[in-house]
Design a protein around this nucleic acid. Structure first.
Lengths: 200, 200
DNA sequence: TTCATAACTGTAATTATATACAGTATTTAG
DNA sequence: CTAAATACTGTATATAATTACAGTTATGAA
């Protein structure tokens, strides 16, 4: 989506809220009434601008024929991460799951399908989906998704300093990873905010 | 209020699908066109009947003013189960979580907050929420919610016969429960279809 | 300076839509 | 058996809604 102006965002959000609360989009008149426009054409102009910017679609000759585009592209499930590219690269996306607002206390940017048994002591098993937020501040004690020398791994972050990062597998048969971030490439891809397991 | 006729269900589902795919409800004419009615009043009559039955609301004088009455008031989270009453009794409901269709392969009737460590070997930890479907056939090998002599427990069902039911805790320091259902009261409250853990 | 975009006012026409009224035929519950 | 509910046809109309055209004012970029 292109950059919406402040006013356009207001209009867009109003439409979104109306759909949320009523179950159907507003008319030009309703938009105008809400924003104090004296002409329904003001709303028409805004809708055209929003359509031009691609955030919604308008069905010609159709009352309330507003379809939001932005809304529901789902949350990607990342399976095996191929080396090199970004974790959310399309080739890594196994499928998408619907958004589930309100179930977890933090937002979820993607799910990562767990490989291996390095976290079984905290109840994270192979093929579980862990919910990742990629914008939370990386904090010791949290379970993080780290990329070390282009390999993605899930561990508990034990220590975080300029010269030493310690990542702890939650499985007594594995040893802690000690990384010197000045010598090895280390990127934090996100923090684990939840776990999802499907018994099918 | 829920006994819709076959035709009414068809109409209702069509409206639901239209909202899903277009983002706004259909008009009387669109409904009539879809079902081959020769008068928009046929649709009007149906809408009135559906309103009367409480499954939707109509905004007078409003185009596409159909609001579906989401029966999705949320999925209850069951904390401690008090002895005696049914598991879904109000006093057991700790809170409710929004429905999350499409995330788990089976429907979820309620979440049960896990107490104790009897299932840690399969990665079910204290305070995890396990998603329970109470209508799936009870099958050996599945993790089930059972009520034995009025006490609710979560275990793997190992054996199920008239004279002997074996419930296995997934923790090597616990022993299997062997129940004779002719002598002890045993009710299966549901089957575990998923697990939810929130790292907050 | 000039042109495009944004953000409106004001008017008006066409058409999309809701919805009442008057019927008919069939099915269902008391 | 009868009244009510279901499931429509057919007609009609007020009004809800889209949307074009013609302007105004302000702003920022070329």
């Amino acid at each position: 989506m292109k950059n919406l102006t402040k006013r356009q965002s207001e209009i867009f959000n109003f439409i979104k809220e109306e759909i949320e609360s009523n179950g159907y989009p507003p008319t030009r008149s309703e938009i105008s009434r809400t924003f104090g426009f004296k002409s329904p054409n003001a709303a028409e102009d805004h809708l055209k601008a929003l359509k031009k910017k691609g955030v919604l679609d308008l069905a010609a000759g159709t009352s309330r024929g507003i379809t939001l585009n932005n809304e529901s592209s789902g949350i990607p499930v990342i399976g095996l991460v191929s080396a090199g590219g970004p974790i959310l690269a399309e080739e890594n996306i196994e499928k998408t799951l619907p958004k589930n607002p309100g179930i977890l206390s933090h937002g979820v940017d993607f799910y990562l399908k767990v490989k291996g048994d390095s976290m079984i002591d905290v109840g994270i098993f192979e093929n579980d989906l862990i919910a990742i937020n990629k914008n939370l501040p990386v904090k010791t004690g949290n379970i993080v998704v780290a990329r070390i020398n282009n390999e993605v791994t899930v561990k508990t972050l034990l220590k975080l300093s300029n010269k030493l990062v310690i990542l702890k597998p939650e499985n007594s048969s594995y040893e802690d990873l000690e990384i010197n971030p000045t010598k090895e490439s280390l990127v934090f891809e996100g923090t684990c905010v939840g776990l999802l397991r499907d018994f099918s």
